[in-house]
Design a protein around this nucleic acid. Structure first.
Length: 583
RNA sequence: CGGGGCGUAGCGUAGUCCGGUCAGCGCGCCUGCUUUGGGAGCAGGAGGUCGCAGGUUCGAAUCCUGCCGCCCCGACCA
């Protein structure tokens, strides 16, 4: 290039005016060297350190330019995949008349989770089923107009009692929510399948490793639903997952293959054992030198104001969700320690089934077990030789235990892994709950009015971002990959006070941009080389192009691949083709 | 809402038990000179109602009371 320095300066000046956001000398990307005290999980720490977000209040975050850039990219991917399945984008109000929420009884259902406006009868929308149904009412009047898929990407408001994990659980958050409207249940299945496909495409494109869990749809009110989950310590759900066959379930409902307790040929008769100060199953096993499978642990619960004894094998954990469904309608709670003595005559640690005097149920694992040891309902004593078949013939058995890592998958020969996970997206078949409540009807082929059958499909945008970051970082910072990377190339001019470096880097900046890449240019005058390197690693763009004095003398620059740390020294002329090859 | 922790300059913190040169340190920021391949050096400088409000005291970051805010665990969770 045959440019005079003056022209270069002019070009620099002009491009600075137009593209200032992409130059670190003028961009607002406030990186932090130190870890803010309030951040605990990697994604939160990195979002703060890279200047992507700042907290305004608990669970309320502002997106700064760099963070918002990624959010926009995630939105765009979602938009493309939603449009691909025939979705049509809306933009709905966050401020809603309370009345419409009362008509579906959800002001009460949401309770304190819903934000209420003080000086007008408005609420802040925590989701938009009602509003979408409101717009569908009367507007979708014929089966010929169905199906429809309507979606939006909008801020939702929920008064979370405890916001946590940075952006993962906030009081205000971005959500893509979609609603399908169908004339038949078969067509709802199709709309649901379309969303399932779209969701997989979205998360695949974002480069997130996820799995799918069948779930209950809770307060949303519906039938079939699936959750798209990401394994993470920061997750709020605990799930069991099988790598081999992809079985996945919330531990609240998950089951596993385990060995049942053995039934021996010979059943001993009951005998009392003195067990001073032996409380736990571990202590009992150590004291008697036996295996935990020979023991039956007792847990006493209150169900409809009556005690229920729950027997588990060894240290197996009672799963209170399973217990609840086994017992049926009604509140279940563990008994308070003070209640135990009244009910059983003994304290926790010495309670057992023989002589309990109230309802007793047991986990399937204990079915027909004999020669078992349990509490004697007398402090410091246990009872041996318990035969469930002989001594407790009326006892009912249920699946009551919580699965644990390493147990057999219920669907294949592999083993289950149990871990925490973040819910990224949720799809479910709503049915006619909202169309019934709001009177959203269409006329079928026979001219008969029918409620529209709805589906509801959500994705948490911040969670997509957080999950990506949880999965892609190292001790130096974020590791971005396309298509979420805010920039493709981080161009580093090591010494901007050196004229050659400054002008060459500026030329490269223009050339790279002309070639269609998003370039972040570190053109800071005073920052030292090390400072720039560290910032670049922290910000984590896929490729770093390092322009230094020494290499430039040989007409060379260095490319560093962020994910591997590999450095490639190449001739200036090969820069563009090399980057094309690497991205 | 229960349990625990915290609140001192933009960020990270010392000091609080034992009231009195304790308002200090590191990073960042500003000015100048030097420096530029892995978070530069020297010199000078700006910046704090010690979360807020009461109270005790001659005197409060420090002790007492109330409130607010933030984090973690739990409960809750669409």
């Amino acid at each position: 290039m045959n440019c005079s320095p003056l022209l270069v300066i002019l070009a620099l000046y002009l491009s600075n005016k137009i593209q200032s956001v992409m130059k670190l000398s003028s961009a607002f990307i406030p990186t932090l060297k130190e870890v803010p005290a309030d951040a605990v999980i990697p994604s939160h720490i990195l979002m703060l350190r890279t200047g992507m977000v700042r907290m305004l209040s608990a669970g309320i975050y502002s997106f700064l330019p760099l963070g918002y850039k990624v959010i926009k990219q995630i939105s765009e991917i979602i938009r493309e995949e939603m449009d691909e399945i025939g979705g049509q984008e809306f933009h709905l109000p966050g401020l809603n008349p309370k009345e419409i929420w009362e008509s579906t009884n959800r002001v009460e259902a949401f309770g304190d989770t819903m934000f209420h406006i003080k000086n007008r009868e408005y609420v802040l929308a925590p989701t938009h089923e009602e509003i979408m149904a409101f717009h569908a009412k009367g507007a979708l009047s014929s089966y010929k107009e169905l199906p429809q898929i309507w979606y939006q990407i909008q801020t939702k408001f929920r008064n979370e009692p405890r916001p946590r994990s940075g952006v993962i659980r906030g009081r205000q958050f971005l959500m893509k929510d979609a609603y399908s409207f169908d004339s038949t249940w078969e067509n709802l299945d199709k709309s649901y399948e379309l969303h399932d496909k779209a969701y997989r495409a979205i998360f695949d494109r974002c480069g997130i490793k996820y799995f799918v869990v069948g779930a209950s749809s809770g307060a949303m009110g519906g039938s079939k639903s699936e959750e798209f989950m990401v394994k993470s310590e920061a997750g709020e759900d605990t799930v069991a997952h099988c790598e081999s066959c992809n079985y996945a379930a919330n531990v609240e409902v998950a089951s596993s293959r385990i060995e049942a307790v053995n039934r021996s040929e010979e059943s001993k008769s009951n005998y009392e054992i003195s067990t001073p100060n032996v409380k736990s199953i571990d202590e009992l096993c150590a004291f008697l030198n036996i295996d935990e499978r020979q023991t039956a642990k007792s847990r006493v619960y209150m169900f409809k104001d009556k005690p229920v004894l729950v027997l588990m094998s060894g240290n197996d954990e009672v799963n209170e969700t399973k217990l609840g469904s086994a017992l049926g309608e009604g509140q279940v709670r563990p008994c308070h320690p003070e209640e135990l003595a009244d009910i059983t005559g003994a304290d926790a640690g010495s309670i057992g089934p023989i002589g309990f005097g109230h309802r007793i149920i047991a986990d399937n694992r204990l079915k027909d077990g004999n020669n078992l040891i349990s509490g004697a309902n007398k402090n410091d004593y246990h009872l041996g030789g318990i035969d469930f078949k002989r001594d407790l013939p009326e006892m009912e058995y249920f699946d009551l235990r919580t699965v644990e890592s390493g147990e057999g998958c219920p669907r294949c020969d592999a083993k289950l892994d149990v871990f925490r996970a973040i819910e990224l997206g949720h799809i479910f078949k709503l049915g006619t709950k909202y169309s019934d409540a709001l009177g959203v009807n269409f006329l079928d082929e026979n001219g008969k009015a029918q409620p529209i059958i709805m589906g509801s499909y959500g994705i948490g945008l911040e969670r997509v971002l957080a999950c990506y970051m949880e999965q892609n970082y190292d001790e130096r910072g974020v590791i971005w990959k396309k298509p979420l990377a805010p920039f493709d190339v981080h161009l580093i001019a090591l010494n901007m006070k050196n004229e050659t470096v400054a002008s060459k880097a500026a030329e490269m900046y223009d050339e790279l941009r002309k070639s269609g890449w998003q370039v972040l240019f570190d053109d800071r005058l005073d920052a030292s080389a090390g400072f720039k390197f560290n910032d670049a690693d922290l910000l984590g763009m896929p490729l770093q192009v390092v322009v230094g004095e020494k290499n430039l003398k040989e007409n060379m620059v260095e490319i560093k691949i962020r994910s591997t740390g590999e450095k490639i020294k190449i001739n200036l002329d090969e820069l563009i083709p090399k980057i094309k090859q690497l991205i």
